[in-house]
């Protein structure tokens, strides 16, 4: 059982290792991730939102809908904790 687990993990690691060969180099300024939309965010954030911290303006303004969904996920997690644990507590008391 244990050997089977190790074999599965090693196979997954090998596949991922093979995948890294085609990935862009570390710290490449012209990698696809940093060429597409992020230059616009960096250059326009002060003019459009007066917020020097780009991460904040991106989090709450440009990607605000994303963060709304994420806040809802946290809300759901709190609700689930209450549903799982509080009913049992009431029964015990």
């Amino acid at each position: 059982m244990k050997s089977l687990t190790i074999i599965i993990v090693l196979i997954t690691g090998a596949v991922l290792f093979y995948g890294t060969v085609d990935m862009p180099d570390w710290g490449d300024p012209n990698s696809p991730a940093s060429r597409h939309v992020s230059p616009r965010y960096i250059t326009q954030t002060v003019a459009e939102t007066e917020t020097p911290n780009i991460v904040t303006s991106l989090l709450a303004d440009y990607r605000g809908y994303d963060t709304l969904g994420e806040t809802t996920v946290i809300f759901g997690a709190g609700m689930v904790c209450i549903l799982i644990l509080r009913s049992a507590r009431k029964r015990e008391e």
Binding site: E48, T49, E50, T51, S57, A60, C81
Partner: peptide, 25 residues
Amino acid sequence: AAARSLGILGVEIGVGIAVMSVMVS
């Protein structure tokens, strides 16, 4: 632009209240 900045502040306050109460809960 300043309205966007204030809007970000309001949104952050909402997120802060939600996260605080969920962690304590």
